[in-house]
Amino acid sequence: MKPFAYVKPADVEAALHAAATEPGAKFLGGGTNLVDLMREGIEQPQTVVDVTGLPFDTVEDLPDGGLRIGALVRNSALAADPRVRDRYPVLSQALLSGASGQLRNMATVGGNLLQRTRCLYFYDTTSACNKREPGSGCDALDGFNRSCAILGVSDSCIATHPSDMCVALAALDAVVEVRGTGGTRRVPVTDLHRLPGDTPEIETDLAPGELITAVELPPAPADSRYRKVRDRASYAFALVSVAAALEVSDGTVTLARLALGGIAPKPWRAREAERLLTGGPADEAAFRRAAEAELAAASVRDGNAFKTSLATATIVATLRELSQEGAVR
């Protein structure tokens, strides 16, 4: 990888200062994505600011019944946290369905939020990729795009966001706490990631030098689950994933939260489906109508057209299972 300077600040102020003053600085967490991208020459920071020494590695209860998760909590620790497992099973399941045991021990919450796409042409530095090299074109449009996105895409980019955790966070209405030299701000996770438009290289709402410090979860919905569909039984990125929470009273849906992974450039909150589900019957036909409505805007290519029906089927199956388990608390 391209040589770089390495700093490991002792506190957040020093980290923010380093990021603001060192040219071409990047924050480093567990390294599971950034180190790989640096070795491939896709990321070439001049300075790496290792933030793993900062004190953002705890999970705390919030007064309203929610949770505050430090950005440096490792994926495995968060998945194993009894509060997460008990109240936010969708989050624990999403984390456990991602990567491998070793990688989950390394990867942080903040890093997971900022991981970059696995599009084949993003990784192949000899290919055209507007995300990697703005203006170079997109070889995925007419190339191998089986894994690419069908919602929220543009003519310049059809890459997906690869995270599982973020899909669960989107369904849970999580809020991301961000700190910069100018102070702290809070961003709903559904607003953190951007759609590609004409600038697929800009992936998030973060300003240069801003650091994710925590994620806050509001009180949990009744029951939730994560369903991931992929090309092998484990250790693969999602073709389609569904994070869902459902509350049903007397056969009527009183609360529906739905987010999709593997099908969009960002964790996709399925608000249209939620709108149709809420107040309607908790039955298969209604689930299917909602799923189809959400996917009506799908823009597919040769290789990924199947994702429309796969996503529909996965949404229906997940909601069916949730409703059959009597998701009433």
Partner: peptide, 23 residues
């Protein structure tokens, strides 16, 4: 192998899917 230029575009163990334990 990209038919347009003969490039192998998944030259990795993350995107070439060998069976894992769970399979």
């Amino acid at each position: 192998i990209d038919p347009r230029n003969g490039r192998v575009v998944n030259p990795s163990l993350s995107e070439y899917h060998l069976p894992v334990h769970a399979d």
